[in-house]
């Protein structure tokens, strides 16, 4: 119910923004959007429905990823309300599986074979286990994360939520919403939480 209410708020805000955009029919963004919609074709698992922005994507695009704080807060709450935490109240999985998920960059491209589960893409952007030397720098380094922040239930829940939907805390973060879009399931997210927080994980050595 709460999710629905939050979505309704989003719809209202977005409608207002769309109306504002309609008044600017001449602006380059409007032209870019109609161009994009005409110029792409479905391929593999990537359908043209992906070109449609959801409310968050539209707000972030239109505001240059700097939405007005009031709107950002409301939309972040909306995203937060959609996070489904594990029913068993446990957040810590197996860091070994987590490492494998973190390594994999597959999923959702038009060349990915259907049926292959999406990876976490973590090393694409973050430094994690210190022995993995091929890591990206689009996101902050997370080496020693558990050592720094501890392995309390509170921290576990925060990390779980962050991986599930990074936009709940930073509306226009470049990090995907892995749980929200169904790229990673509950067990996979738990395994990634373990990779970051388990004292035995290489991230914390």
């Amino acid at each position: 119910m709460e999710i629905r209410k939050a979505s309704l708020i989003c719809t209202l805000i977005c409608t207002q923004l769309s109306l504002a955009a309609a008044a600017w029919a001449d602006d380059p963004r409007a032209k870019a959007i109609s161009m994009i919609k005409a110029d792409f074709s479905a391929q593999g698992s990537a359908g043209v429905d992906r070109l449609e922005q959801d409310g968050l994507q539209a707000v972030c695009t239109r505001s240059g990823n700097k939405p007005p704080p009031a709107i950002a807060r409301r939309l972040e709450q909306d995203q937060q309300a959609g996070i489904r935490y594990p029913a068993d109240g446990k957040f810590l999985g197996d860091w070994r599986s987590g490492e494998k998920i973190a390594q994999s960059g597959s999923g959702y491209t038009w060349t990915d074979p259907p049926g292959v589960p999406a990876g976490g893409n973590c090393y694409n952007c973050h430094r994690l286990a210190p022995q993995e030397l091929s890591f990206g720098s689009l996101g902050p380094a997370l080496t020693g994360y558990g050592k720094t922040f501890g392995n309390t239930t509170e921290v576990q829940k925060y990390v779980y939520g962050k991986i599930y939907n990074a936009k709940a805390s930073h509306l226009c973060s470049i990090m995907p919403r892995f749980g929200h879009v169904g790229a990673l399931n509950e067990q996979q997210i738990k395994d990634l939480v373990a990779l970051l927080l388990d004292p035995a994980s290489p991230v914390n050595q």
Partner: peptide, 15 residues
Amino acid sequence: IGKAVAAYRAGPYDF
């Protein structure tokens, strides 16, 4: 328009 295309966020990963 090209600049706006480069800024257009969409898809499962919001990229």
